[in-house]
Design a binder for these strands. Structure first.
Length: 774
DNA sequence: TGATTCTACGGTCTC
DNA sequence: CGTAGAATCA
């Protein structure tokens, strides 16, 4: 097969370049992925490079999966042993550490290859624990701010000791203590956070020459996608992996660098030629995606930036329609305009794919409401993802604990879930002991138990819990399949039972989700993966991995839209303070990043681009609307490329005070069941990662959810002299009532009782002081 | 002890 | 408006 067929001269140059460093500056829509995949195929097929000696790194699992599929399609590889390694930075590092991480225990106390990964929810829980231990609350500094300070420090290779040394005021020395405890706790839990995955891999390769040499020899060719978004640590990793050869090809676009706040260092791409003086630079400037007008508008905006290498994209495409500008009265009107326009577009072409992009997730709600009023189906990307759901996090926490009982964050999550009588005081007691003795929660719990430090009630509860964890841990050690282990967990912990007993639509939905997780676990086990591997996958899925491009109408943040394209794009909320965001106003470089973000948004559009703004917008629910100024980015679009739009008649006709409430309710409900309804499909797809090409996904499911019926109370079975369902009782305050439901046994049983005139009450038998009516 | 209600507070993007 | 933590109640 000829991999050069259908490529333009620059693309062809890039594909044929074999030895030595290569920088590809690939403008938006210039066929970047095509070049990367063809180059890999070329290396394998024409240069006869063995697949496994090629490493290609991307930022998202989705991008990696797509690339794998496309390469496989080009060279017809079905045997994974001959395939190139295509993965994300994070997955790659996890693989290295799990396989060859042993020497790291010299550098990091307590490190073992069976470490757990802390995702950002875990990190948040961890920092909260640290705060609590130090008697701090968010008034000192928001959790997120502390985490981001720590993350930045780590990425600069700063230690808590450095922080202490630099600390001049009480606040920064307090922060140093937080940092120190955070790190301590990670170590005693044998856990690595996202930063650590990269950082420790770098330290390992730096420290252990044999390992480094092995990896350098194995990977003769290294390719890095989205190079403009790499941070300093990723850069170092790249340098280490190319320390014996310089066969590194990086692909990026400085105009699309939008992750500076996350530590991406734009210098990495700006300075590549200085780092590798013999680098060849290829510019891909022909755009194959957008119309001339859209391309020119976007280029004009980004041209206002100073920090760039400078390139000007061109296209053979026709001018196309002009950029539609709409000025709305308020945010609601803006949303209705968008919904109305979409309806018209769909009437003209029912197959049209449309995206509504916005700066902040909070904007999605109003847009959702408007689309619902029009009865339009849509898909929100990046809401609550499958793995962030409570029941899924709980189940995964149990799995993590089964694998590694020292994982204190997971332990804290499940120690009393479902409720088993280990209350706040007991948990605090154990946590205090753990912090004092610098051991894990699990170890501390065992010690306290042996020293008989608990009261009788707590002792029984903790003892039972310990036996439960031991049982699960033994099962995990014995190599039980992950789906069986999960089933065991759900059964032995009473988790599934508790949900069944709820008899509520919500409980049912949670059970369904857990079933879905079981399916994924079964698939994973079928592929011969261990429990730990299953957990690694779960930790490394990201929001943007479940973007479903086949959905007709997508709502997503501009950040999430990176790498995607849509025939029609709306950019909503183009206002000063929102886009560019108010947080970026002080710094020139932050403002440039906002501008690049705007550029990314605009260049997602193929045929038609709309930009809208509202003259007033309320910051949140109850507050009063605040006046807004149009975004400066709107002024940076040359006037001759735009057309002003006015509201369609339909918009003013929509009058919905009555409907509004209902719509709100529906949206709310949907937050629970429907918002990411597609991620259920995607989870199995994700776990099938290396597997078969997924069948093209069906269009988005209808989002008009029917209200779930309230479950009727279970049949009453009258019993004599007992607090049974159906019994009639007397309450000191509420008088006569009927027991509808009973949960649990003995004096701790919870009773749901209907009192005429007072409604339903949930009471605990031993506190309620009930008398049975004869 | 655990569930429910109340209150105070606050907002980017997220591997 | 939504959330998280505190206060309250049974």
């Amino acid at each position: 097969m000829d991999f050069l067929q259908g490529l333009n001269p620059q693309q062809r140059d890039a594909v044929c370049h074999v030895e030595g460093p290569l920088l590809i500056l690939a403008g938006a829509g210039s066929g970047k992925t095509r070049v990367i995949t063809h180059r890999i195929a070329y290396l394998i097929d024409a240069v006869k490079t063995p697949g496994p000696s090629i490493l290609a790194v991307t930022f998202t699992n989705k991008a990696a999966g797509e690339m794998r599929d496309r390469v496989a399609g080009l060279v017809g590889l079905t045997d994974w042993r001959r395939s190139p390694v295509i993965s994300t930075f994070h997955s790659f590092c996890v693989r290295v550490l799990r396989k060859d991480g042993d020497p790291l225990s010299d550098l990091r106390s307590g490190f073992r290859r069976d470490f757990t990964i802390y995702d950002d929810a875990d990190q948040l829980a961890l920092i909260k624990q640290v705060y609590r231990a130090l008697g701090l609350d968010e008034k000192f500094m928001p959790y997120r701010a502390a985490l981001s300070a720590i993350s930045h420090a780590k990425n600069q290779k700063e230690t808590p000791a450095d922080f202490h040394r630099k600390a001049t005021d009480p606040k920064s020395s307090r922060l140093a203590v937080i940092f120190e405890q955070y790190e301590d706790r990670l170590r005693s839990a044998n856990a690595l956070d996202f930063d650590d995955l990269l950082l420790e891999t770098v330290r390992l390769l730096h420290y252990d020459e044999a390992t480094r040499r092995a990896y350098c020899e194995r990977f003769q060719f290294l390719m890095i996608d989205e190079y403009q978004d790499t941070n300093r640590v990723q850069y170092e990793l790249m340098r280490l992996l190319t320390s014996t050869h310089h066969n590194v090809c990086v692909v990026g676009d400085e105009d699309q660098s939008i992750y500076g706040w996350r530590g991406a260092d734009i210098r990495n791409i700006l300075d590549f030629e200085r780092d590798f003086p013999d680098a060849k630079v290829i510019r891909l400037e022909q755009n194959y995606r957008s119309t001339k007008n859209i391309l020119e508008a976007a280029s004009s905006v980004v041209a206002h930036n100073k920090e760039r290498k400078g390139k000007w994209l061109w296209t053979h495409a026709a001018a196309g329609e002009r950029i539609g500008l709409y000025e709305a009265w308020d945010a609601e009107n803006e949303a209705l305009f968008i919904a109305d326009t979409i309806e018209n577009l769909l009437r003209a072409n029912s197959q049209e794919r449309i995206a509504v992009l916005y700066r902040t997730n909070a904007q999605s709600r109003q847009l959702e409401e408007a689309l619902r009023r029009y009865g339009l189906k849509y898909l929100v990307v990046g809401g609550l993802s499958f793995y962030q759901r409570m029941e899924i996090k709980d189940a995964l926490a149990y799995l993590k604990v089964a694998v590694s009982p020292h994982d204190s964050i997971s332990m804290a999550r499940i120690v009393n879930t479902p409720a088993r009588g280990i209350g706040k005081t007991t948990v605090e007691q154990i946590e205090r002991a753990a912090a004092e003795q610098r051991v894990s929660f699990w170890t501390a719990m065992g010690r306290l138990l042996e020293q008989k430090q608990f009261g009788t009630r707590a002792e029984a509860a903790v003892g039972a819990f310990r036996r439960l964890v031991e049982e699960l841990h033994d099962a995990a050690l014995a190599g039980m399949r992950v789906d069986e282990l999960l089933r065991l967990i759900l059964e032995r912990t009473g988790y599934a039972k508790a949900l069944e007993n709820e008899q509520s639509p919500e409980g049912e939905s949670r059970l369904e989700n857990l079933n879905e997780l079981l399916n994924a676990a079964a698939d994973s086990a079928e592929r011969g993966e261990s429990v730990a591997e299953f957990l690694d996958h779960a930790a490394l899925v990201s929001e943007s991995d479940d973007v479903d491009e086949s959905a007709q109408i997508s709502l997503l943040t501009v950040h999430n839209a990176k790498g995607l394209e849509f025939p029609v794009v709306f950019l909503a909320g183009m206002e000063e303070g929102l886009f560019p965001h108010s947080r970026s106003r002080e710094s020139a470089s932050a403002l440039e990043e906002e501008r690049r973000l705007c550029y990314v948004g605009m260049t997602r559009a193929q045929k038609r681009l709309y930009m809208t703004w509202a003259r007033s917008r309320r910051r949140w629910g109850g507050g009063s609307p605040e006046p807004c100024q149009p975004s400066r980015f709107l002024r940076e679009v040359p006037a001759h490329l735009t057309e002003r739009l006015s509201a369609q008649t339909a918009v003013s006709q929509v009058d919905l005070f009555l409907e509004q409430h209902e719509v709100r309710e529906t949206v709310k409900k949907n937050l629970f069941t429907g918002k990411t309804y597609n991620s259920l499909d995607h989870i199995s797809q994700f776990f099938a990662e290396r597997g078969i090409q997924p069948a093209s996904s069906p269009p988005a499911a209808p989002t008009r959810v029917s209200k779930p019926a309230i479950a009727p109370p279970p049949n009453s079975r009258p019993g004599k002299g007992e607090l049974r369902a159906g019994a009639t009782i007397q309450h000191p305050k509420y008088g006569r009532g009927t027991i509808l439901r009973r949960e649990g046994e003995g004096e701790n049983a919870k009773l749901t009782i209907s009192f005429p005139g007072y409604g339903l009450k949930k009471l605990v038998a031993k506190f309620a002081g009930l008398k049975i009516d004869e």
